[in-house]
Design a protein around this nucleic acid. Structure first.
Lengths: 235, 235
DNA sequence: CAGTGGTCTAGACCACGTC
DNA sequence: ACGTGGTCTAGACCACTGT
């Protein structure tokens, strides 16, 4: 692990394990550099990553301060992919409705940025949070990137598997979302009524190499989900 | 303007004015440093900010590539505040329903992180996109931070005013959102029917000094809005 | 193994805030 | 005026990609 990552982790742990409240002033950059026996720039880099994660904020000429207290139960839209990390304290389970290998048609080829007839995993799932229905998900994975996938794996967290077993490095993602009225089919799956509200999300996820390997269409249950997103001004 | 900001701007302009497609390889870091006659670190900093804005991605050992093509018509949830910037090409207007100075009650004091009875601007607006109803917004501003505000200003973009006239520096923001069924009152204001779907968003916006100065509750019209959010893995 | 991005250093200097 | 964060440099070295 790199120096600045290790330092960032230690500072984060320090904040959380001492439950430092919002606005608490942290040591100066110079102090940190002295304590960790590294150059100022390394500390600056470590702090930068904590700013981006929303954990601290820096005020030029004034100091470094603790930002947010933890919020729990919100699906984090800043996170690249998967709820398993933002909903750690909840039991996330899945029912696999459909598990197939198909050939990309025109629409899928376009959404997945691949060629016609490329082999694609197509998976439909209902996902549960603490045994309540959270969402319906229809996802597509490039077989060329994810060579092996099973229904058993899909019952658990697919991203957990991609990360740890296949060692795939996620790079970035896009989400497009809007509010809809449920049609009869999806309403049924979510155990809601037609015309009930829902959020529909299209997610596209890229490896750090810039190749898209997955897109999903997700319909969230309006009663059992809430969302969170934060921004930081980029200088 | 700082060197790295100027360089970032020029590279961004270069990409857009030449409409470089996704995946286009850009010059190497070394090349950029030579061209702009600055040190490598300055280029690295400039490129970092473009990565965070979702304009390029970098692959270690390989190169620097163009990321996204522009999408238009989506409300950007990565942006700190206001739609005026993400919906540049659209006509955004407002009808002010209510404009008041009130004293913070318990609930507002908590949401705005201020003291009981602090003076607060309370503004209710309907906002339009190309003359179609976009949302209902109820927002609260600390008078101690925003000393002067009028109904006239509220008819236009308040954030535009805060930025340019008052020179306030935005630092970061939090958004909490969920899907709801409209009640009769809000349905009326949005010219929709009770029980129609909507997204309800709570926004809290902080100055770069870490002081929250505004929070808003926004109810979006489900037919006239769509949203966009991107993530980048933080190393 | 060459090419390219990423980390790290030590130090100079700049810009903002607070007292 | 002083303290503190931010920028910038030149250069050494590390780590990943692709030929």
């Amino acid at each position: 692990m790199l120096k600045y990552q290790q330092i960032a982790k230690e500072i984060e742990n320090y904040i959380y394990s001492n439950s430092l409240p919002q606005g608490t002033k942290l040591p100066t950059v110079e102090n940190f550099a002295f304590d960790y026996k590294v150059s100022k720039s390394t500390i600056v880099k470590a702090l930068e990553s904590l700013v981006l994660k929303g954990i601290i904020y820096q005020v030029q000429g004034s100091g470094i301060f603790v930002r947010r207290r933890n919020r729990t139960g919100y699906i984090d839209f800043n996170i690249l992919a998967g709820f398993t990390s933002s909903l750690k304290e909840f039991k996330i389970t899945s029912k696999v409705l459909d598990f197939d290998i198909i050939k990309a048609d025109n629409k899928i080829a376009q959404l997945l940025e691949c060629n016609l007839n490329d082999e694609i995993y197509k998976i439909k799932r209902i996902r549960y949070i603490n045994n309540e229905i959270m969402c319906y998900e229809e996802s597509y994975y490039k077989k060329s990137v994810v060579p092996y996938l099973t229904k058993e794996i899909a019952k658990e967290s697919i991203f957990e598997y991609l990360n740890s077993a296949l060692n795939l490095n996620m790079g970035f993602s896009d989400r497009y979302f809007n509010i809809i009225k449920l049609d009869k089919h999806i309403a049924n799956l979510l155990e809601l009524n037609p015309n009930d509200p829902a959020m529909s999300v299209l997610e596209q996820i890229y490896l750090s190499s810039g190749i898209m390997f997955n897109f999903s269409k997700i319909i969230y249950h309006y009663k059992h989900t809430q969302f969170y997103s934060q921004s930081t001004s980029i200088k």
